[in-house]
Design a protein around this nucleic acid. Structure first.
Length: 274
DNA sequence: TCTTTATGGTGAG
DNA sequence: TCACCCTAAAGAT
């Protein structure tokens, strides 16, 4: 399940077994990709990279495997020849001497050359990576002040991969709650303090999710809720998917709304409209 | 068995 | 903003 943190974790796991290894066999199950199997077989993987919510695998023969999981794709890593117990549809398989990297369900798969990678419609549009080490919260603040973005609602900005790459629907809700900002607000109407808080929350929440495996609640709160016996699904987020439940900060019932054709969750007290 | 939802994305108007 | 694409799983009937 794929926002930036999930994709980065998947790419890191793939890198552990594919980086610098020869892929002895490569298979694609979609007829339009059949011919690429033999083309990639025998090449060596240079590295596996997450870009936004896509995974790009670099081969030493100048080709790249692009895959986007959308809502449903999933990578598995197994010992070579072993398959996960799943009813999903296998779409791509990369076999090294020791391991198999298996992509299920995803339909957005492409094999690209250098030029194809450089001009790819999704990749070319990505803004700065929220999870990249060299991105500072001041970079995000500058992005928020950019006239191209400053007039738009936060609800729209935080789903736009050109604004910041790697953020999706749960991070949108969690970041805006953490910053105490209503999703209908616009950067140009925010003061210096709010802008700074939002920029920091953008990186803090996204990076926390990467570190924890999807938990956006602060560590102390998450542990406390866990000790109370709540399941992973119930303790991981502050507002996302918690409609009707009490806000951890003020007890107000969390509200669920639809913005940009996606569900968004917010605390009407902690995130006032203006 | 049918319908809806989902942590995503595109293109037309 | 909306219709639509994609696949899997949950929910409704």
């Amino acid at each position: 399940m794929p926002e930036g943190p999930e994709i980065w974790r998947a790419a890191a796991r793939l890198g552990e077994v594919l980086d610098d290894r020869v892929v002895e066999a490569v298979e694609f199950t979609q007829p339009r990709l059949h011919n690429y199997g033999p083309v990639l077989s025998g090449s060596r993987v240079r590295r596996v990279e997450a870009r936004g919510k896509a995974v790009v695998t670099h081969f030493d023969n100048g080709l790249y495997l692009y895959s986007h999981n959308q809502l449903y794709g999933r990578w598995y890593v197994r010992k070579r020849g072993q398959l996960p117990a799943t009813a999903r549809t296998l779409r791509a398989a990369l076999h090294t001497a020791a391991h198999s990297a298996l992509l299920y369900s995803a339909s957005d798969i492409e094999v690209l050359d250098e030029a194809g990678l450089a001009h790819h419609s999704y990749l070319a549009r990505l803004g700065p990576e929220a999870l990249a080490q060299n991105v500072h919260w001041r970079d995000i603040a500058a992005r928020l002040r950019d006239p191209a973005f400053a007039g738009r609602r936060l609800s729209s900005l935080y789903l736009d991969q050109h604004f910041v790459a790697g953020i999706g629907n749960y991070l949108r809700s969690e970041i805006l709650f953490d910053a105490g900002l209503h999703p209908a607000r616009r950067p140009r109407d925010l003061g210096r303090g709010d802008l700074g808080a939002l920029a920091r929350s953008t990186l803090v929440i996204t990076r926390r999710s990467l570190r924890t495996g999807g938990v956006t609640n602060p560590d102390a709160r998450a542990s406390k809720l866990k000790r109370q016996g709540l399941s992973y699904g119930a303790y991981r987020h502050a507002v996302f998917a918690r409609a009707g439940e009490p806000c951890y900060a003020c007890d107000t019932a969390i509200r669920r709304e639809t913005m940009g054709s996606r569900r968004i969750y917010l605390c009407p007290t902690c995130q006032p409209e203006a």
